[in-house]
Design a protein around this nucleic acid. Structure first.
Length: 367
DNA sequence: AACAAGGGTTTAG
DNA sequence: TCATCTAAACCCTTGTT
C-alpha cells in the first residue's frame, strides 16, 4: 500500500501573523518573546522573522542574548507572544486545510499532516498541484506563506518540508529517498537531537547513510530496544505512522516564579492557580484523569516530578489541588531546595471508550 | 511475561 | 552571556498480577 503524505508548516508563524497585522513591522527584524516576568527582559524567544535570524537570533534563545544580537540593527522590534490569538488564526486555517485531505492531523499550532493518497490518485504530479493550490488558498484567504513537503510517509513529508523555506514546496518520491537521505548529517533526521548526535558521533556515525547501515543490535544497546529500531527505520526512510488526530494524553501548566523560593504558602497558592488553569482546559472535553503530577524546576534548572495516581478517575478541581499540595509537601521533604519554576499536570485519562478498548484489545491497543 | 506506576530524559515547535 | 511553555515518546526501575 503506497501513500502520499503532505506536511504543511507555516513560516515563522507567530512573527508572520504579527507582520501581517502590523505594517509598522514590515522589513524590520521582529522577535516574538515569552517574557517570564521575573525581570524586565527575562524570558526566551518564541520565534522571529528571517531579518532577525540574519542577525543570529533563534527561537529558544534567551531574550537578553537576542538583544545583544539586535545591537547590530536598531530597527529590531521585540514583542510579547499573543498565543490565544495565534491559536484562533490557526484553527480557522486548519479547518480549511482539513477539507483538502482524505485524512488530517494537526500536529501543532502551525503544522499539519494531510494524507492525500486518494485525492492525488497516488500520483506525485497531481499531489504537487494540490499542494500549490493549498498554498495559493492560504495566501489569498489568510495572507500567510507556508512551506510544504510531500513524501511517501510522514517522516519524509516532514523532512522534505525543511528543504525549501520559507514559502517552499518540496517533493521526495520513493525513488529519491536514498539520494536525499544518505548525505544528510544525522542531526537532520527528525527525532535526532544533540544528545543522540553526540552518542552516534562517538560511534563514528555522522551521516544518515552511516546510520542506515549501522547494526541495529548495537543501536538497541546504545539507545534501548524501541528507540534502536526507530532510529534504524527512520534512517531507512521507513515510517508507517498513519495520519490521524490523536487525543490529548496530558494537560500541564508551568509557571516561572517571581523569585526562587521554597516558601510553602507561595508554592501552594501558585499550584492552586495552575490547577485551576489545568482544570479549565478539561472543561469542554469529556475526560477524567487518574494521575496528578507536580513538576518542579530548581535554581539549577533541574526538572523533577512527583505524581500520584488516584484510586478512582476524577474530574474535579479539588482533587487536583489537594493532590498537588500533598505532592509539594512530599517533594520538599525529599528536596529542600528553592524552586525557580513550578507546574501541574494531569494525565492517565480515562473515558468509556478507552476503558472498553483496553479491556477488549489488551496489548494490541498500544499502536 | 505482561502490565501499571513512578520518575527521568530527549526531542519538537 | 541566560535559560518559556506544552506535549509526546521513550527509557529504566520497581512492584503486581
Amino acid at each position: 500500500m503506497t501513500r502520499i503524505i503532505l506536511l504543511l508548516d507555516f513560516d515563522y508563524f507567530y512573527a508572520q501573523i504579527e507582520e501581517r497585522d502590523n505594517s509598522k513591522y514590515k522589513d524590520k527584524p521582529l522577535v516574538v518573546c515569552v517574557y517570564s516576568g521575573r525581570t524586565e527582559n527575562s524570558g526566551a524567544v518564541a520565534t522571529c522573522n528571517y531579518k532577525a535570524r540574519d542577525l543570529g537570533i533563534r527561537s529558544g534563545m534567551p531574550i537578553s542574548f537576542a538583544q545583544k544580537h539586535a545591537e547590530k540593527d536598531s530597527e529590531t522590534v521585540f514583542i510579547p507572544v499573543r498565543m490565544d490569538y495565534y491559536k484562533e488564526v490557526s484553527s480557522e486555517i486548519m479547518e480549511m486545510l482539513r477539507s483538502h485531505a482524505d485524512k488530517f492531523e494537526q500536529v501543532s499550532v502551525d503544522e499539519a499532516y494531510l494524507d492525500i493518497s486518494e485525492s492525488s490518485g497516488e500520483n506525485y504530479q497531481k499531489a504537487a498541484v494540490i499542494a500549490a493550490n493549498i498554498k495559493k488558498e492560504v495566501k489569498e484567504k489568510f495572507e500567510l506563506t507556508c512551506s510544504i513537503g510531500i513524501g511517501p510517509n510522514k517522516l519524509l513529508a516532514k523532512m522534505s518540508a525543511g528543504v525549501h523555506k520559507p514559502d517552499g514546496l518540496t517533493i521526495i518520491k520513493p525513488e529519491d529517498v536514498r539520494e536525499f537521505m544518505d548525505p544528510l548529517l544525522v542531526h537532520k533526521l527528525f527525532g535526532i537531537g544533540p544528545k543522540t548526535t553526540k552518542i552516534l558521533a562517538a560511534n563514528n556515525v555522522t551521516t544518515i547513510r552511516d546510520l542506515a547501515m549501522y547494526d541495529i543490535g548495537v543501536l538497541q544497546r546504545l539507545f534501548g530496544e524501541n528507540k534502536g529500531v526507530l532510529l534504524h527505520n527512520r534512517a531507512l526512510g521507513i515510517d508507517e505512522e498513519i495520519v490521524e488526530d490523536s487525543d490529548k494524553q496530558q494537560i500541564s501548566r508551568l509557571t516561572t516564579l517571581k523569585e526562587d523560593t521554597m516558601n510553602m504558602d507561595i508554592l501552594e497558592k501558585t499550584v492552586e492557580d495552575l490547577a485551576r488553569s489545568v482544570y479549565t482546559k478539561t472543561d469542554n472535553m469529556e475526560i477524567q484523569f487518574k494521575t496528578v503530577s507536580i513538576i518542579a524546576i530548581n535554581s539549577e534548572l533541574q526538572t523533577r516530578t512527583r505524581s500520584k495516581t488516584l484510586d478512582e478517575p476524577s474530574d474535579d478541581l479539588d482533587s487536583i489541588q489537594n493532590s498537588c499540595k500533598e505532592l509539594i509537601k512530599d517533594f520538599l521533604k525529599d528536596h529542600p531546595e528553592k524552586l525557580r519554576r513550578i507546574g501541574v499536570r494531569i494525565s492517565n485519562f480515562s473515558d468509556y471508550e478507552k476503558e472498553k478498548k483496553q479491556s477488549d484489545l489488551g496489548k494490541f491497543f498500544k499502536k
